[in-house]
Write a protein that binds this DNA or RNA. Structure first.
Length: 681
DNA sequence: GTGGCTTCATAGTA
DNA sequence: CTACTATGAAGCCA
C-alpha cells in the first residue's frame, strides 16, 4: 500500500530468496482432472511391496524394537480377512492406480459448488430453491418428551447423482474458490444459527449449530470435492486451518465427521485394497507429535479396556503401509480462542513407514503407525511450532527492525520485520488508535443508549441497542461478527451496560498479535502470528477523517494511504445463503454498503490498517460501526476476517475500483488472484 | 434400502 | 483448567 506498484511480473526469481518467510500461498492449479494419485513405479511395475523395517534407510527409529513392540501379522495384500473391502464396480483399463468407484458416481471430483445469490434470476425457471432448514429440521436423534423413549429421526440419505439438479449457478472453475465459498457459506450459516440459538429464551438441550449448518450444506450438495481420493485435494492447501470437523468433510479433506481415519477402496495392479487416505491427529489418543515431520499415530478402537483389532482404519493404515500410498494428515493445535480449544491444520501428505503393536497406558494393545511427511511441501504445522518458539523467546525471531511499531499505544506490541531486503521501515507517521474527526466528538450527535444491566443479552427484547441493529446483536457471545450490515451500532457511553458487553467489540481495540512485514513486491504489509477465525475483528482504519472533496488529487503519496471504499458488489457478498435457512435474502446491494461519501487519510497518522494491501480475493472486509458518537455520516471503519486466516498469511481487503468517482487513479494490481481485475484503487 | 454401530466432536456444567 | 456427559451426524457395514 505504501509503494507505487512496481511491475506486473509475478513470481520472479526473488521469490525463492525469502528464506524464512512462508511463501505467499499460491493457488491450486486449475482444472485438476486426476484423482491426485500419482502412479508409483514400484507399484506399477509389480515390484515387491516395501515392508519398511525399523532400520530402513529412512527410519531414524531404534534398530532394535523395544520388547513391548510386536510385529503385526500382515494379512495378504489384496485380500481382506475381515471383509473391509467394499464392492468394486469400476473397471480399470490402464493399470495405474485409480480409486475404485465408490459411493460417488461423479466422473470427476471437480468441486461442485452451488451458489445461492441474488442474481439467480439470470438462470430463469431452471432454478430449484434450496431446501430450507425447516424442511429437514428434524435431524438426528432426540428424546421424545411425551413418553421418554429414545426416538431417532430418519436421516435423509443423500443420493449423489450427476444431474446437478440443485445447481443454482454454474460450478466454480477454480477449485480454491469453490473450497472458500463452501467454507464461508458454512461459517455464515453456523454463525447465524448460533445467533438464533442464543436468542432463544428456553434452551432445550444442547444444539449444535456446527452440525446443523453442515447438514444444510450437505443436503443442498453445497460441498467441494465430493467423492474420496488419494492424495491432495483440489483447492485445499497445506497450512489451511479449520475450526470444525464438519469443515473437513465439506471440502473433501476427511469424510468422517468424528472418526480419525478415513479410507477408501482403490484399484491396484495386484487387486483392490482399502487404504487409508487421511487421518486426524487431534489429541484423542496417545500420539507423539514432537517432530513436525513425524507423526506416531495410534490406531482406532480398543476403548482403553480391550485390545485394538486389526480392522477398519487400522487395517487400512496397514494396507497403506504396504501400498506406499499418500495419506493426508490433519493435525490439531491448541487455540483457546475457540470453545473446543483446538484448531485443525492441514499438514499435507505423509506416508506410513512402519507399524507395530504396543501396550498403551491402560495395558491393552494399541496399534501404532509411524507416518513421515513427504518432502518439498510448504510449511504446515512447522510454521506453528516456529511461531511458538518466537513467542516463548522473541530474540529467536530474526530480522526485527522494531519490537513495537505502536510504541506501546496498542493493546499488544506490533513487531516490524523485514525478511526480504534492507529497507529499514516505512516512512514516518504518527501512530494513533483513533480516527481524527474534523469536529470534536462532543459536538457530534450522541448515540441512544440501552438500559441493560451488566451486559446486553441476545434474548433481552428490551435492549434498544439490539433494536438499533435490526433486532439482533451483531456479534456472537464469543465476539464474532455474525453477518455484514450496512451499519453497526455498538453500545456507547450512553448505555448502562459494562465494558464487558459483547456489543462493545471494535471500540476495545486489537486482540490479535500482528506484525508489519516487508512484502516481496507490494511494499509493507500486515499479517498475524495468531490464527484468525472468520468473523474476527481485526482492527479499525484510523487516520484523519476527510470529506471526499478535500482529497488532494495531486498527492501521489497521500493516495497510497487513503481509505475510500467503492461499492463493489463482489466484495460485499459475505453473508451467503440466508435462503438456505429459509430466511429472506440479505440486502447485499452495494447501495447499502457504499461508496462512501468520505475518506480517511492515514498518510500522516494511522495504525496497522494503513499497511493492509489490496487483493481482488481479500481475506478481510470493512464494516461501518458507530460507538462513540451517533453521526451516521462519520462511521468508524472496522475490519473483520472474511474467512479463517492461517498464521503468517498477509491480510488484504478489496480497495474496490472507484471508477473515476473519486480521486483515485487506478493502479496495477499484483494480488495474483485468478479473479484479479488487473486494476484497483 | 435400512437400521445399528463406531468414531481423535462439541458445548455446557461441575 | 480438567473431567464429565449429553447430544450429535457421517459413513460404514450387516
Amino acid at each position: 500500500m505504501d509503494t507505487g506498484q512496481a511491475n506486473c511480473t509475478p513470481n520472479s526469481t526473488k521469490e525463492s530468496e525469502a528464506l524464512d518467510v512462508k511463501p505467499l500461498r499460491t493457488l491450486a492449479p486449475m482444472f485438476p482432472t486426476n484423482f491426485g494419485v500419482q502412479p508409483s513405479s514400484s507399484l506399477a511395475d509389480g515390484g515387491p511391496f516395501v515392508y519398511v523395517s525399523p532400520t530402513g534407510p529412512n527410519s531414524p527409529s531404534p534398530a532394535v524394537p523395544t520388547p513391548q513392540q510386536a510385529p503385526i501379522s500382515r494379512p495378504p495384500v489384496g485380500q481382506s480377512p475381515l471383509s473391509t473391502d467394499g464392492p468394486l464396480r469400476s473397471a480399470n483399463s490402464n493399470g495405474s492406480i485409480r480409486p475404485a468407484e465408490s459411493s460417488s458416481p461423479f466422473p470427476t471430483p471437480l468441486a461442485t459448488v452451488i451458489l445461492v445469490d441474488d442474481e439467480d434470476k439470470e438462470l430463469g425457471g431452471q432454478i430449484k430453491q434450496p431446501l430450507p432448514l425447516s424442511s429437514y429440521e428434524v435431524s438426528g436423534s432426540g428424546t421424545d418428551r411425551r413418553n421418554g423413549s429414545k426416538v431417532r429421526a430418519k436421516r435423509a440419505r443423500r443420493t449423489y447423482n450427476n444431474s446437478n439438479d440443485l445447481a443454482l449457478v454454474p460450478s466454480c472453475q477454480d477449485p480454491r474458490e469453490s473450497v472458500e465459498i463452501v467454507l464461508m457459506t458454512y461459517d455464515a450459516l453456523r454463525r447465524r444459527l448460533l445467533q438464533q440459538e442464543e436468542a432463544k429464551e428456553g434452551k432445550d438441550g444442547t444444539r449444535r449449530p456446527d452440525l446443523t449448518a453442515g447438514t444444510v450444506l450437505m443436503t443442498n450438495n453445497l460441498r467441494a470435492n465430493m467423492g474420496k481420493r488419494i492424495g491432495s485435494v483440489p483447492g485445499v492447501e497445506v497450512g489451511d486451518i479449520f475450526y470444525f470437523r464438519m469443515e473437513l468433510c465439506l471440502v473433501g479433506l476427511h469424510a468422517q465427521s468424528m472418526g480419525g481415519i478415513d479410507c477408501m477402496t482403490s484399484k491396484f495392479e495386484s487387486g483392490d485394497d482399502t487404504v487409508a487416505i487421511s487421518v486426524v491427529s487431534a489429541g484423542g489418543y496417545e500420539n507423539e507429535e514432537s517432530d513436525a515431520d513425524v507423526l506416531i499415530y495410534s490406531g482406532q478402537g480398543g476403548n482403553a479396556n480391550v485390545d485394538q483389532k486389526l480392522e477398519r482404519g487400522n487395517l487400512a493404515l496397514e494396507r497403506s503401509l504396504h501400498r506406499g500410498t499418500d495419506i493426508r494428515v490433519i493435525r490439531s493445535a491448541k487455540d483457546y480462542s475457540c470453545n473446543s480449544g483446538k484448531i485443525y491444520i492441514y499438514d499435507g501428505l505423509y506416508k506410513v513407514h512402519e507399524s507395530w503393536v504396543e501396550k498403551g497406558k491402560s495395558g491393552f494393545n494399541v496399534f501404532k503407525y509411524k507416518l513421515l511427511r513427504k518432502p518439498e511441501q510448504p510449511d504446515g504445522i512447522a510454521m506453528w511450532k516456529r511461531i511458538q518458539k518466537w513467542k516463548e523467546n522473541p530474540a529467536a525471531r530474526g530480522r526485527i527492525i522494531l519490537p513495537d511499531i505502536s510504541s506501546g499505544i496498542e493493546n499488544l506490541p506490533v513487531c516490524l520485520v523485514n525478511e526480504v531486503d534492507d529497507e529499514k521501515g516505512p516512512s514516518h507517521f504518527e501512530y494513533v488508535t483513533r480516527v481524527k474527526y474534523p469536529r470534536p466528538l462532543s459536538s457530534m450527535k450522541p448515540l441512544e443508549g440501552c438500559k441493560c444491566l451488566s451486559v446486553c443479552l441476545p434474548d433481552d427484547v428490551s435492549c434498544t441497542c439490539a433494536h438499533g441493529n435490526g433486532g439482533k446483536l451483531p456479534y456472537s457471545s464469543s465476539g464474532f461478527l455474525v453477518s455484514r450490515k450496512p451499519l453497526i451500532y455498538e453500545c456507547s457511553a450512553s448505555c448502562s451496560c459494562s465494558i464487558n458487553c459483547r456489543n462493545r467489540l471494535t471500540q476495545k481495540g486489537i486482540t490479535i498479535q500482528f506484525e508489519v512485514f516487508k512484502t516481496r513486491d507490494r511494499g509493507w504489509g500486515l499479517r498475524s502470528l495468531d490464527p484468525i477465525r472468520a468473523g474476527t475483528f481485526i482492527c479499525e482504519y484510523t487516520g484523519e477523517f476527510v470529506e471526499k472533496a478535500e482529497v488532494g488529487i495531486e498527492d501521489a503519496e497521500e493516495d497510497e494511504y487513503i481509505f475510500q471504499a467503492a461499492g463493489d458488489d463482489k466484495a460485499f457478498k459475505w453473508n451467503y445463503g440466508p435462503e438456505l435457512l429459509g430466511e429472506p435474502s440479505a440486502d447485499n446491494s452495494s447501495a447499502s454498503f457504499g461508496p462512501l461519501s468520505f475518506s480517511i487519510s492515514a498518510k500522516n497518522m494511522g495504525n496497522i490498517s494503513r499497511f493492509i494491501n489490496h487483493s481482488c480475493s481479500p481475506n478481510v472486509l470493512w464494516q461501518k460501526v458507530l460507538y462513540d458518537h451517533g453521526d451516521e455520516g462519520y462511521p468508524h471503519i472496522a475490519f473483520f476476517a472474511i474467512k479463517h486466516i492461517p498464521p503468517m498469511t498477509e491480510l488484504t481487503y478489496d480497495y474496490g475500483l472507484s471508477g473515476g468517482v473519486g480521486s483515485h487513479r487506478p493502479k496495477q494490481c499484483l494480488c495474483g488472484s485468478p479473479k484479479c481485475r488487473g486494476l484497483f484503487g
